[in-house]
């Protein structure tokens, strides 16, 4: 889009379809607030006024049917793991998962003797972006979200996937 600026009238835009779709799909992902533990507080702080999540287009939605991104924030226990899977299946395609914090990535500080802790949420749902930290700072969370936006941007939804 940038190469062709000022060459045509204002109401003509030339872009590749992939880039256009990428721009449309990536810049307003609504997140499913799946706050479980301490990372949920940092997620709330990121959504509050100092580090505002709404300026990158993210709004918290409580129903999985209305969300694009599921941010798993906090420790996933085995009792909860079955529900995580169910909620992930209830989300509509295209859907993405961000694993926030070290507990969701690999069990966190509870990896050694945690008999009831799931050692990483990627054992039940496929994860796109991992954000380390205990808890990750709001700036880390925003960087993770921007990385997810880059990833969505670079997807090519129109290409027929060959076997």
């Amino acid at each position: 889009m940038g190469v062709f600026e000022n060459k045509f009238h204002d109401n003509v835009v030339i872009a590749s379809l992939d880039k256009l779709l990428g721009w449309a799909r990536s810049t307003s992902p609504w997140f499913f607030q799946f706050g479980l533990a301490c990372c949920a507080i940092e997620m709330m702080a990121t959504a509050a006024s100092r580090h505002d999540l709404m300026r990158i287009g993210m709004i918290p939605r409580s129903s999985p049917r209305q969300a694009d991104v599921m941010i798993v924030a906090g420790t996933v226990t085995l009792k909860m793991a079955l529900r995580v899977k169910k909620l992930y299946e209830q989300m509509a395609n295209p859907k993405y998962v961000i694993s926030m914090g070290s507990c969701a990535t690999s069990g966190g500080p509870y990896w050694q003797h945690g008999y009831h802790v799931l050692k990483g949420v990627d054992l039940v749902v496929p994860v796109d972006v991992y954000i380390p930290g205990c808890p990750p700072r709001p700036e880390s969370l925003i960087e993770g979200l921007l990385k997810l936006q880059e990833k969505i941007q670079s997807e090519r939804p129109l290409t027929r996937k060959t076997a």
């Binding site: 079955l82 069990g107 990896w111 799931l118 050692k119 054992l123």
Partner: peptide, 24 residues
């Protein structure tokens, strides 16, 4: 669980319970 002779069960509903990856 909090008894001293407790042994963790291997799987729960198909999910592996003890620590997973090698070299941890």
């Amino acid at each position: 669980p909090l008894r001293k002779d407790y042994e963790v069960q291997e799987t729960y509903h198909g999910i592996v319970v003890p620590k997973v990856k090698e070299g941890w």
